[in-house]
Design a protein around this nucleic acid. Structure first.
Lengths: 267, 267
DNA sequence: TTTTAGATATCGCGA
DNA sequence: TCGCGATGTCTAAAA
């Protein structure tokens, strides 16, 4: 591999913007090791394209034979190894307590460890086509519309959307294990437990609601109603709800923040 | 931005290995558009570092203001936009039915759509520091040890690991909603419902077991035991289990596939 | 296509 | 740190 020559003859090192810090093409193992050691603990993001083997041991154990992969190392210590398909990495480590690069048998080996849970990912770089160090800067402003938290806030403001005459007593009320999304009282003065789902509700949501309703019934006298509020529900879940004496109310997921309002700002 | 000159003077285009197809540093929007259009539908993996804005609309709606990001486009049509932290992308599209690159107001804009669910991700590239086209080849051999399926198979072979005298009648027995991991009979001839968890079991697992046990009790006469088999359990979950008359049995997660057996193959 | 259950889920919050 | 629940969860398998 005539990689040192390449790295020297065409180094894309001129960083016109502060973002691109350094980049090597087809480096030798030695050059790669020097590069990694210089950048690893420098709050930079590294991506590396090359042929690698990966070994993971922790909650489970996995091994991947040599293959073309894309590595991503972020300044928070997270590591991911991507293959040719899917959003999910082939191997990963969400957070590393210890990260190091060594030379073993002529190959650079990355070692990413974390405790709690005790896990280790070892990446052996057999060949490196390109490695780049970037400064990704701080997190940019990010807005998400349509989360369950926003749905909860909207319905807490206008509980009539669930049922006329409903008045909210609490949000995120802790009752034993877990929290009740909305705790309310209906027009007849009965207590109502409301479980929200931002998407289609499955039977797990019904069971969750059932647990909360039972917990409340053990603590307060009188009738306690349970309402599952979601934009949709699976057929089996609806049957389970009806059998358990729980109600389903269809509510729209998004309080319509229109594209027109977002579009001009961004594009 | 004198990017065209840079792309021409130091193009890391010489692909010493078949993996690296092409790479540009600080391309102009026009050069980037040409590059993307040439590579987008060519079964290659693209990664792009630059300043981008992202707009997502679908199950929810999100917008990210301009920031330094790393884009990853795989040949299966998946797209992900990474920020400086975490394994999870800031924005993504697991699968695209339509992918295109356009020039809008002097900026390259990527458009990734999918139907079912109807979702769209728009990425506006304000500045591109580096873009690379790679051939990641086929998926390499990958082995994972320690899945719940493997645990179930192991315990079905040797149910004595759960309790001496236990004999397995069924695996994945369907009973109403959901399936019983292991259905067995103990030394006294009582029916036993076993729920497995490969990691630490929470109270959800206990409730899941309780549902199955109740379903079985409605169908067969006599005593029905419920056993939660997992390598660990949370304290609240254990209390709930004891209160419900359900048992917890500690089982090791991995049937000992030793590092010694894996290590020599890989390293 | 719909539904379910698993995942090395990840991530963030609250006690 | 642990426990818990949401996630644009993703993903594969089964009905």
């Amino acid at each position: 591999m005539d990689s040192a020559a390449c790295a020297l003859c065409c180094p894309a090192r001129a960083a016109h913007l502060p973002m691109l810090i350094d980049s090597l093409t087809h480096p030798t193992p030695d050059a790669l090791l020097t590069f990694l050691r210089a950048q690893l603990h420098a709050r930079v993001t590294l991506h590396l394209a090359g042929e690698v083997e990966v070994l993971y041991a922790g909650r489970a154990t996995s091994m991947a034979e040599a293959g073309d992969r894309l590595l991503l190392l972020k300044p928070d210590g997270s590591l991911q190894v991507h293959g040719p398909r899917g959003v999910k990495p082939v191997n990963w480590q969400p957070r590393t307590d210890h990260l190091s690069a060594e030379l073993e048998d002529g190959c650079v080996v990355l070692h990413a460890e974390r405790r709690s849970p005790a896990e280790v990912v070892r990446v052996r770089v057999i060949g490196c086509a390109q490695v780049t160090a970037l400064h990704l800067g701080d997190e940019a402003l990010f807005l998400l519309q349509g989360s369950e938290a926003q749905m909860q806030a909207a319905l807490a403001r206008t509980p009539d959307l669930i049922e006329p005459g409903l008045s909210v007593l609490n949000r995120e009320l802790l009752v034993g294990v877990g929290g009740i999304d909305l705790y309310a009282r209906d027009a007849q003065g009965r207590f109502v437990v409301v479980e929200l789902k931002r998407g289609k509700a499955g039977h797990e949501a019904v069971h969750q609601l059932a647990r909360y309703v039972q917990a409340v019934r053990e603590q307060v006298p009188g009738t306690v109603r349970g309402i599952l509020a979601a934009p949709d529900i699976t057929v089996p879940a609806l049957k389970v709800a009806q059998a358990a004496g729980l109600e389903y109310v269809k509510v729209e997921a998004l309080p319509q923040v229109p594209e027109e309002a977002l579009q001009p700002t961004l594009f």
